[in-house]
Write a protein that binds this DNA or RNA. Structure first.
Length: 431
RNA sequence: GGUCCCGUCGUCUAGUGGCCUAGGAUAUCGGGCUCUCAUCCCGGCGACAGGGGUUCGAAUCCCCUCGGGACCGCCA
């Protein structure tokens, strides 16, 4: 029983609610979550809101929304400021034992002058720090609130966190925290400091790097499984494999395949990955996900969406999605399925005699009982044969007239899914 | 500046002393397929930061240099 408890993995993600969740934070959260799930452990979400000035409720909501979207569910949730009794008790203990002292109304932790310490990091090996490099530091502000470096230790110890998996930027804080563990008489967790995600200029991610907010990627039409897959591959790998499902990730993830050098977030590859996931995802689910994108800022109304019918939309989506990188792209091309005015990419120029040809095509198509790809194809070829014309003579203009663009899936599939009424109406505008 | 971390194609990475004239993916370029294309298939370009060691042998181990990053708050 005791051994089982010792081996039980418990990790936490501890963001400060001072802004949205960016991709770097999300990656840290993901690695913690994956580690917990892989080892059947516990994943804690702990909001580090000890900075009263900068913490906001809106940020907490943003972070929670982003985590939920990514599917990173937590087993425990805490806010640090709700635990100040515990912090006070721990700090008072240090004062009582002379390990901390008061100065200018703040409480300071006394760092031993001599000696050195070794931070045993799961990813980087042993890192040595000399005590003389450290200075006494504040654990409690003069306003009575506690400082991150202190509460993080008290909370991690109190919650029984076994593995502290966090960004590289915290490595340098670790010796101070270890000193606190020792002063508090608590056992040390294992540490793993993850390499950072950098902007394209190799500097730490910040506002000036454009889009870094996780939720912003949702808004732009990326799938949560894409983000999870992509973020996992930033720093972690499994041979040559690039595409992973969430379940595979849980099964395969471990700290020994995590690298130690910083990575740059490359959107081109993210788009490619999203296209891969978009292509293979369940069409019914994609339909639900793409709906708000189709209805947002376009001429397509809720009524049109209902009239279109789910079956037809799923069919259209399945045909159209292959060439789309995002839900936004998909929504854009899906407008061809609705009775809206199409913005044509290029002006249509009819060749000599083409008007008659199109008229014949319209007549044939109008007579079709079934508007399947096969039926459309034979009808079309039949009509063309009468005029001794080739498909390529009219394909381009038919495509442009019925879909508004020059590229897309095979013409017969395309016409079939756009549907007879729309195809004929749009072709008639040519004549 | 001090301390610490990191350094394989533009980017993400495989590689843990011989399987490496360095593999995959993406990006890019070219070709094929097609009514068309952003899909798909085939192919090209492209990296072990530099220098010293150790070793029969080094991308892999050690040292130095250079480069990049992080931290140096009563922020987290």
């Amino acid at each position: 029983m005791h051994l089982r408890r010792m081996r039980m993995v418990k990790v936490r993600f501890a963001p400060s609610p001072t802004g949205y969740l960016h991709v770097g934070g999300a990656r840290t959260a993901l690695f913690n979550w994956l580690y917990a799930r892989h080892h059947c452990g516990t994943f804690v979400l702990r909001i580090e809101d000890t900075d009263k000035e900068r913490s906001t409720q809106a940020s907490i909501e943003q972070i929670v929304a982003a985590m939920s979207w990514l599917g990173l569910d937590w087993d425990e949730y805490h806010c640090q400021t709700e635990r100040s009794d515990l912090h006070l008790q721990a700090a008072q203990g240090l004062i009582d034992r002379g390990l901390a002292y008061e100065h200018d109304g703040a409480w300071w932790f006394r760092v031993p002058v001599d000696g050195e310490m070794v931070v045993r990091d799961l990813l980087r090996g042993d890192v040595t720090f000399k005590h003389e490099q450290l200075k006494d530091f504040v654990i409690r502000r003069s306003d009575g609130s506690f400082v991150y470096n202190f509460v993080v230790v008290v909370d991690d110890a109190d919650m029984g966190i076994t593995h502290v998996i966090r960004g590289d930027d915290h490595l340098i804080n670790t010796p101070r925290q270890i000193l606190l563990y020792e002063a508090l008489g608590r056992p040390l967790p294992l540490f793993a400091h993850l390499p950072m995600i950098l902007g394209t200029d190799r500097a730490r991610l910040s506002k000036r790097h454009g889009v870094t907010s996780v939720l912003e990627y949702r808004r732009r039409g990326f799938l949560p499984e894409t983000m999870v897959n992509f973020l996992a591959r930033l720093g972690w790998s499994h041979g040559d494999q690039e595409i992973f499902t969430r379940e595979e990730l849980i099964g395969l993830f471990d700290l020994d395949s995590v690298g130690s050098s910083a990575a740059i977030f490359d959107e081109a590859k993210l788009k490619w990955l999203n296209q891969c996931h978009l292509k293979t995802a369940d069409p019914d689910r994609i339909l639900a996900l793409v709906k708000p994108f189709v209805l947002d800022g376009r001429e397509v109304t809720e009524q049109m969406w209902r009239d279109a019918g789910e079956e037809r939309l799923v069919l259209g989506l399945s045909l159209l999605r292959d060439r789309c990188a995002t839900l936004a792209d998909l929504a854009e091309v899906m407008t061809i399925l609705f009775p809206v005015r199409l913005a044509h990419e290029k002006e249509i120029r009819l060749a000599e005699g083409e008007r008659e040809l199109i008229t014949a095509v319209v007549d044939t198509l109008a007579g079709l009982a079934l508007f399947t790809p096969d039926a459309v194809e034979s009808a079309l070829r039949e009509a063309l044969a009468k005029y001794g014309a080739k498909l390529k003579d009219v394909a381009k203009n038919i495509r442009m007239a019925t879909t508004g663009r020059g590229v897309g899936p095979g013409l017969f599939d395309l016409l079939s899914v756009v549907g007879r009424d729309l195809v004929i109406a749009r072709l008639k505008s040519l004549i």
